[in-house]
Each structure stands twice: as C-alpha cells, then as structure tokens.
Design a protein around this nucleic acid. Structure first.
Lengths: 338, 338
DNA sequence: CTGAAAGCGCTAACAT
DNA sequence: ATGTTAGCGCTTTCAG
C-alpha cells in the first residue's frame, strides 16, 4: 500500500504538503494541489487511520455500548443501534459496537484506556448505572441513551416517560377505562434498576392518581411465556381491569395472543397499549398494537449529536433532551366495555 | 494518561521491557515482571491502541458490513449481529459496525484503504455482490455470512438452503399437502439478487418437483401490508393451496394475522411454515410459527472464525461451511385438510 | 506558499 | 534476561 511519502515523491513535493492538501489546513496553490491529487489517485492512496490517530488528535471512532442481555433483543432496540450508526457516519465517525456486560467495569476502563475511541455512547442505562463513574473518572467524552437517577451533569437523551404515561392514561381515561393493569419487566430487571421500567411505573402511577383510576402492576419476563403468565393473572382478577399497559414487546405479544386463545376480544373486552414498542413490532401482532413510543431514530440521533459536540469541544455543559413520545392508535385499544 | 515510558521509568527498567512483559514475547524474570506490573497498576496504564496498531502488525478491529435497508431489520437479523460481535470479542477483536449501502463500493474501498480494520465480514450478501471484487483487489482478509453465486475461492458460512427446502417440503408432503404457496421477497429484492430468496426458491422448487407437488410463488414486500396482499392472492386461488412457505417475518406475520381476520383457521385449514425466522419472532405471532431456520449464532460464530483464521494466517484456502437448518414445529402447521 | 524536522507511543530487530 | 534503536505513517510546529 502506498504511503504519504510515495505520493509526495510522485508529485514532487514534500510529504507535509501532501498532508496539507488532505487536511486543508494550509492554503496550497492550485498547481501543486492538482499534482498531489493526481498522484494520490494514481497510487490509490488513503491515509492510514492508525497513523493519523497517533500523530493527530482526532480518533474518529465512537463506541456504542450495547450490553448483552439474556433476553435477546427486539427489532425496536435494533432501531436505536442502526440510527446511531447512521448518525455517526454522517458526522464522520466510525462506530464500534461494544457488547460487554454492563457490569464489566474493568473492561470498559480498559476500552477507554486504550484510547481507541474518541467517546462512548451508553445504551440500556439503569437508574444507578456503574458505567458513568468509570467514564467520568476516565475523563473521556460520553453521552447516553437513557439516564440514571442522578443525572445532573450528564449528557443524555431519553424518552419523556412522564409524558408517555400521561398520554396513555389520558387516552384510556377519556375512553371510560377506570381500572388498569401494568405489565412490568421482571422483578429481577426492576431490581437491576431498569430505567424505562422504573420511570414508566412512576409516570403511570402519577397519571393514574391524577385521573382517579386504579392500577395493578404485574411483573413478568419479556417473552411469550411471560405474556401468558400475565394473562393468567389477569383472568384471575376480580373485577378485571379493562385496559392493559405493557412495556416489552415479546411479553405484550404473548399476552395478546394468549388473550385471543382465551376468547377475550381485544379491544372490545380489553384495551392493550404497548409502551416503547416500535412500529414494526407493533404490526407483527394481531390485533396490531396501539403504541406510545418515542422515535428511536430521533433519540439516537440526538444522543450521537450530544456526544460528538463534546468530543469536538463545542458545547457549554451537559446536553439533556427528553423526546416526546407519540401515540399511534392501532387496533388493540378502544372504549371501555360497559 | 500515562505512557509506556512513564511505566518504565517508575519500574526502573527500559521501555521495551515494559512492552515485553505485556506481550509475553520474551522471558522476563519474575522480579522485573513484578516491578513492571505494579508500576502499570499504579499508573493505571493501558497501551495505546493506535500506537500498537501503527508500530505492530496487529490491528484488532473487524468490520461487520451490515448495509442499511429501507425495510428495517428484524430481531432475527439482529441475532446475527450480536452473535458475531460476541465471537469477535471472544477472539480478542473489536467490532466496527459499518452500515453504508451495499452499492457504496467507493466507501468500502476507502474503509479498507484506511487500514483501520484487519478484516471485513459481509452480511446481506447478494448472488452477484459487488463487494467481493473490491475486497479481493484490496487484498484484505474477508469472509461472508451468505454467499454469491460465484463463490469458488471465497470464505463463507451460509444456511444450507437445499436442506431447508427438503425439510420443509418433506414435512408438508408427509402430512398430505399437495399444493403449496411460496411467499417470496419483492420482485425488486429478487432482481437485486437477494441470496436467501434465490436459493430458497430453487430449493423449494427442487423439493416440490421431487415429491410431485405443486407450488405457486407470490412476491410481496416484507411488511404487514405485503402479508395482507399475499393473503388476498391466496384467497383468490382456486383450488387454494393447503400450505404456505414464507420467507420474511414481517410479511409472514401479516399473512397469518390477515388469515385470522378472514376466519381461515391455521393450521386446520392451512399450514404455514416460516423459513429463516428466529425463535423470538416466531413466538410473537399467533399461532406461533413453525420454522425451518439455521442457528444465527452458529452461522455468525463460524463466519467470524473463518475471518479470524485468515487474518491470523492459519488457514489453507477458503473456509466454506453450510449450516444445517433445524425445524421447530410450533402451532402453525399440521396435516392437510381433507 | 512550501519544506524540514520533531514527535505521537508503541513493536521488534539488533544488540549485549 | 534486559537494554538500545530504528522505524510504523502520519500531524504540526518551526523556518523560510
């Protein structure tokens, strides 16, 4: 592979001149610029990223920490990843997908210590997430999709859960529903401090109290079996709630499908609203799920922007943004039965 | 941040000694090793990845090319990504997710020219994929998940589509089905040379001929609407096939859900088998889909292994592996109606 | 407007 | 068993 010196030789200029026509950090005469450019093309030259990174200050790689989960991932979560990836590309950065467990603090320290990446974007943030301390200590730019409870000086972009709770509950209350069930993540996930679960529970609780409704919470695992369990619990309730708010798509699908088997009619007997579930997943289920969810693309884009702003040093303090979720009424919700 | 020279100074040894205790490429006395290690710890030292990459030969990053698609991605496809990511990590490599469009040959050339990555893993391979030529010319190690038609000297891991076709068709034939419908990807995707679609069509065609069955092919887009269109076409057929083989999960879900709305009973009136769809997606649908699919994890692991073998120079020629798909009978298939 | 030269923080060959 | 030294291919000062 050709190096910068090869180009310089062919063009009959000094090596640094080649660098300067590439970086544009110096005014170069059109004549030499042309010579250099044509030499570059002839040799099919591309600067070596490692040499650039070592010599210069810019290391154009971002890490996206997407911790592995036993539950597997949904297409909804994948949307966040692809959106972040595309935004990074648009801003001239490569994206390193980093999947070590969330608890692997040592691994994160070492990733950062290697200085391979210019900044880190965190996903799957818990309310007491240990990664923030590591990153703060390491003095590396970072931002997060989601936020911990103590987020004062942090740069993050998150769903506006309070708004999501209000939207969903207002919608149901206006349709005459008085009694709700909330399908939460598993107790284990709640203990682990799952951010969306925690905030959604608070938000719905507040909204329910504000409208004078009743709500019962049911924790299940996010898979078809969890959804079936939730249905059994639902069937055993007396009186039964007329609406269900649910957090995760696999459990929600399991619930809806089991309800169908049990000859419960959705939405005639029971309304279901999926929170935070993407459009593709919502339409895989029958009846198609009414959802309240933020645009994953908007969240990821804003988060990457926040990170890059820090990296490039053009920011005054932390960027904090809450994305307003949108309600998409599909076929799983309607007026309360009388 | 501390550098290697800082560590050497603190430990009272030469800089290269520090390098050697890290790499283990030289026998070091326990005494000095201890000194160095403690100095490293005290300074919280981690070697700089860019310096290591520039000076040495090892550049521990793999690129995973996951081209952007307008259709969005399913959780099934995401499984391939996470599995590849984890295998890379286990083998001591970082994973760069690269999402430029498949046709961005220039971009690929430049990524490779930068020498940022030690090798490239291709996903979403089409039968006449332009990326292989680029990579071959660039003389960089690469492997693929999926394969083009001309794959003689290539390293790839792919689903054994012929086997998948046999498994699915034999199963249906043994249950008394004579007439099948095959829900293919859109005509546009077929023209683009979608590998799984092309090979599945061939495989099913062969298997159907071998068992003396009939088959009709229906191309639709991979979304809920496409599935509904497929159902309309199905309903218009006379006589109607008793079994449907389908390729993509969003279209399949749309078809099954629309069938339910039309009061078609699955599997009593009609069997549905989803090809290449993962377990999580199969269970989001009601009735849960019978699937014939390879383990995405196995494919990704084998593909990363093949790539790393090339990078590390311990391979004799191309590694080519076909992964046998497994049938998972769920609730969407059964005996042909009489 | 352009060149020369000093690093960036390492690896690995060449010493002893 | 350890030290010395020549690069790796760039960016960026310093010098015209």
């Amino acid at each position: 592979m050709a190096t910068r010196d090869d180009v310089a030789r062919l063009a009959g200029v000094s090596p640094s001149t080649v660098s300067y026509v590439i970086s544009g950090r110096r005014t170069i005469s059109d004549a030499t610029k042309a010579k250099v450019l044509s030499a570059m093309r002839e040799l099919n030259y591309t600067p070596d990223a490692f040499a650039q990174g070592l010599a210069g200050s810019r290391r154009g790689i971002l890490a996206l920490h997407f911790p592995t989960s036993v539950d597997g991932y949904s297409s909804t979560e994948f949307e966040y990843v692809t959106a972040a990836m595309e935004r990074a590309r648009a801003l001239g950065y490569h994206m390193l997908l980093w999947s070590n467990p969330m608890t692997d603090v040592m691994g994160l320290e070492s990733l950062v210590g290697q200085k391979l990446v210019a900044g880190v974007l965190l996903m799957e943030v818990s309310i007491n997430d240990p990664r923030f301390d590591v990153l703060r200590r390491a003095n590396i730019p970072f931002a997060s999709i989601g936020r911990p409870d103590d987020s004062e000086d942090l740069s993050y972009v998150d769903n506006d859960f309070a708004e999501a709770g209000r939207i969903a509950v207002d919608y149901l209350a206006d349709l005459g529903h008085h009694s709700l069930m909330y399908i939460n993540v598993s107790v284990q996930d709640q203990k682990a401090g799952n951010g969306p679960a925690t905030r959604t529970a608070r938000a719905i609780g507040d909204a329910v109290a504000g409208r004078g409704l009743r709500m019962q919470e049911v924790p299940v695992e996010n898979n078809a079996r969890g959804g079936r369990e939730a249905l059994e619990i639902y069937l055993a309730m007396d009186p039964r709630p007329t609406a269900v708010l649910a957090l995760k798509e696999f459990a929600t699908a399991g619930f809806v499908n089991a309800a169908g088997m049990a000859s419960l009619r959705i939405p005639e007997d029971l309304s279901v609203i999926a929170l935070g579930v993407g459009d593709r997943s919502a339409e895989m289920v029958a009846p198609a799920l009414t959802t309240v969810a933020p645009s994953g693309e908007r969240i990821s884009h804003a988060a990457v922007d926040a990170l890059v702003q820090q990296i490039e040093g053009r920011t005054t303090g932390a960027v904090q943004e809450l994305i307003t979720p949108q309600m998409m009424v599909r076929d799983s919700s309607g007026p309360a039965p009388r």
